[in-house]
Simulated scan of single mutants.
Amino acid sequence: MNKVKVLTVVLFIIAFIEVIAEYFRIIPLIYVFKPLISIVLMLLYWLSSTKKETLFFLTITTSLITNVLFIPNDLKFIFVGLIIFVFHRLINIYYILKVMKTKDFIPVVLASVPFLIVFFYIFFDTDLLTKEVYYIMIIHNSLISLLGGIALSHYIMNDSSRSSWLLICVLSFVTLHFIIFIEKFYIELQIFRPIAMSLNAFAYYAFYRFILIIERSNSN
């Protein structure tokens, strides 16, 4: 437990340094600390979990790869990163559905509608998307809306600690997705990157807590 506590503090220190690095665009620090967040999170899960689910490591690893590909702000790397991120999101959704044992998908679909309306309204309101990115963004908007629907429906139908952590995680992802889209296609502000990085780090920490709660409750 002491190792877990120390590593948790280390994780937030690393995240704080990364946020500062993003604000001032200190690229060498970003290349070190951005992937380090994912590495420390996986180590934290390894020490905390008795199950050590492969899907957790696969989720965080694909996130790590996309985070690194997004650093150079080069369209080629971003395009590859977006493709890998689709697989990341699919793994993420499958993992959540699996551990939450979701059987009734009607509430999920209904809860996804508000997210779909917001994201696709913003999406169709811009004409700056290239042909290659256009279709990938449709997939991304659909997947993040589905993820939002899963979290919201479970929270409404069963308000528990696991549902709360899942909702916190997913709302952080949704806000992150919204900020990145606004920054890339509407207005670029210096403050957007550190906010996005803060949300990213907190979202995955919340995801880690969500998975741990489920694993421990299943063990009990």
Rank of each mutant, 00 (worst) to 15 (best):
I27P: 02
P35Q: 03
I71P: 03
S63Q: 06
N200I: 12
I139K: 00
F77Q: 09
I136Y: 03
H177T: 14
S145T: 11
H177M: 09
L43Q: 07
K3H: 11
Y45T: 02
G148Q: 05
S142M: 15
L128Y: 12
F123G: 04
S163C: 11
T54P: 01
M42W: 01
A206Q: 00
M42R: 02
K184Q: 12
I27A: 09
L212I: 14
S48Y: 00
I39V: 15
Y121L: 10
D104N: 15
L143A: 12
I213F: 06
I156E: 08
S145D: 12
Y95L: 13
F210C: 06
I20Y: 10
M157N: 15
N141G: 15
I213Q: 09
I191A: 10
P35A: 01
D74C: 02
M137I: 13
K184T: 11
I39W: 13
R216W: 06
M197R: 09
L189R: 04
M1F: 09
I150Q: 03
L171Q: 07
L82A: 15
M157F: 11
V4N: 08
L29V: 14
Y208N: 00
S49F: 09
I78A: 10
F12S: 02
I27Y: 13
V32Y: 12
I17V: 15
F119A: 02
D104W: 09
I213P: 01
I191Q: 06
A203I: 03
M42E: 04
F56N: 00
D159S: 13
Y135H: 04
D159K: 15
L176I: 09
F77C: 11
L166F: 05
I180Q: 09
A111H: 06
S217Q: 14
F57S: 00
L47M: 07
L176E: 12
V19R: 01
Q190G: 07
V99L: 06
P114I: 07
I13M: 11
S164N: 13
Y121D: 08
Y134W: 08
S48N: 00
Y23S: 02
V170R: 01
I84Q: 02
I117R: 08
N2A: 14
T61P: 00
I96E: 11
S161K: 15
V108Q: 04
T8I: 04
V99T: 07
A111Y: 12
P107M: 06
V170I: 14
T50A: 09
E18T: 13
I26D: 07
T102L: 13
S217T: 14
I27L: 14
L90F: 10
V118W: 14
E215C: 03
T59D: 11
